[in-house]
Design a binder for these strands. Structure first.
Length: 385
DNA sequence: TCTGGGGTCCTAGGACCC
DNA sequence: TCTGGGGTCCTAGGACCC
């Protein structure tokens, strides 16, 4: 076991505009154009009589949903991930909108991670399109390694990525973003003052919209200003744990270890409706959606080999407030009808005083079905009667 | 025309136990 | 006759990330 004080070399690899880039492999004629992926009512491209394809236009989109990924050409028009589609349609009406194709993204994800693993096996997964890689024990210099990794990813997928290599995960994550797309950034701790301190505090992974606003309110805009703020002041405003963390990360300090394997903590399914639903007028439809969510969750549990002791319900009202309720059972369950009963018991505990825009069901307290010694019930009805 | 879906982690209060 | 101090589990909400 290596002591944490030992100097490490950690890479962060981030695929460039991942979902959109995967789509461009199928539709190369869209290269160089603003393209977004997302939405639920998006038609796949149609083939015209002359063999060319007809794509849906963002400006014609009607309905709920957000952008999941946009190409760099679309970002130049102000259209980014998580932006509402109707709002983005105003900003970039002539952009092309494509439906998401998650199976294809998962397959490309598997391919790029496999290509990296063949070079450097110590990988931490950070979702579908990014990973950390421990390069500490590799022989080659960082520039050579970065090029090798990028080439391997491109050969396996036809896609480009950006890489940051530094002594820790915090700086590598910031670094991979500094020369996007198709970039490499290599930093040492000595570079923090010149390269990191000028950046906005929200570039730090873990400083989100709320913390950023609070810092701005204190007159702290850059990471350098954060580093030069007395830790006591940060503790005063953010609490002991967060305050001290802010001071450390502003100085580029991050001792978090690589996490090479992990078990899921929860599995969930949720759905935002096309239109807000009324608890009485739309009762039948709501009930069907609720049951379908529970059945899909049961499928997910079985496929992944887990049972769950705690079933939770999530509900979002028309005004976007959301509430959760959960119940812990005496035994773990995985049957769809049992999940439906448990979630139904949760639903009885929430106030249904306005229309609903989202329902979700969550399984936590997971127990692996492959590990013996756990009490798992396949019960029929007697738990809630 | 607001604001997806799947996750993790943290906090805080209350129950309950020793 | 007036009330400690842990520890763990459960629940609800919220921040944050991809």
């Amino acid at each position: 076991m290596r002591a944490t004080s030992h100097s490490r070399r950690i890479a962060h690899l981030d695929m460039d505009a991942f979902f959109a880039s995967v789509e461009l492999l199928s539709y190369p004629e869209l290269r160089g154009r603003p393209v977004v992926v997302g939405g639920r009512n998006v038609d796949a491209p149609l083939m015209r009589a002359d063999g060319s394809r007809q794509f849906a236009r963002l400006g014609d989109y009607v309905g709920r949903g957000v952008i999941t990924t946009s190409t760099y050409e679309a970002r130049a028009l102000g259209v980014f991930s998580a932006m509402g589609l109707m709002r983005s349609a105003k900003l970039a009406p002539d952009a092309v909108i494509l439906p998401a194709n998650f199976d294809a993204y998962r397959e490309k994800s598997r391919q790029f991670k496999e290509a990296v693993a063949a070079i450097a096996p110590n990988i931490e997964n950070r979702g579908i399109d990014e990973i950390y890689i421990d390069l500490t024990d590799m022989e080659e210099d960082s520039h050579t390694l970065a090029q090798r990794l990028k080439q391997a990813v491109f050969d396996a997928t036809g896609l480009t990525c950006s890489i940051g290599i530094t002594p820790n995960k915090l700086l590598s994550k910031i670094g991979s973003d500094l020369n996007k797309p198709n970039g490499v950034t290599i930093l040492a701790l000595d570079d923090v003052k010149t390269r990191i301190w000028p950046l906005a505090t929200k570039k730090i992974n873990g400083i989100g919209p709320k913390a950023y606003e609070k810092l701005t309110g204190l007159g702290i805009h850059t990471i350098g200003e954060l580093a030069n703020t007395p830790p006591a002041l940060l503790v005063q405003h953010f609490g002991i744990s967060n305050g001290e963390w802010l001071s450390r990360v502003a100085h580029g300090i991050d001792e978090r270890p690589m996490v090479l394997a992990s078990e899921p903590k929860s599995i969930s399914r949720e759905s935002t409706f096309e239109k807000d639903l009324h608890v009485r007028h739309d009762r039948a439809e709501l009930s069907d959606i609720f049951t379908a969510l529970c059945m899909r969750l049961a499928d997910d549990l079985k496929r992944k080999g887990y049972a769950s002791k705690t079933i939770g319900l999530k509900l979002r009202y028309a005004d976007f407030r959301s509430v959760t309720r959960d119940v812990t059972l005496p035994v773990a369950i995985f049957d769809g009808a049992d999940i439906r009963k448990a979630a139904g018991a949760c639903l009885k505990r929430v106030a249904l005083t306005q229309k609903i825009r989202l329902l979700g069901v969550r399984a936590s307290g997971l127990v692996s079905l492959s590990e013996p010694g756990q009490e798992v019930a396949v019960l029929q009805g007697d738990l809630f009667n």
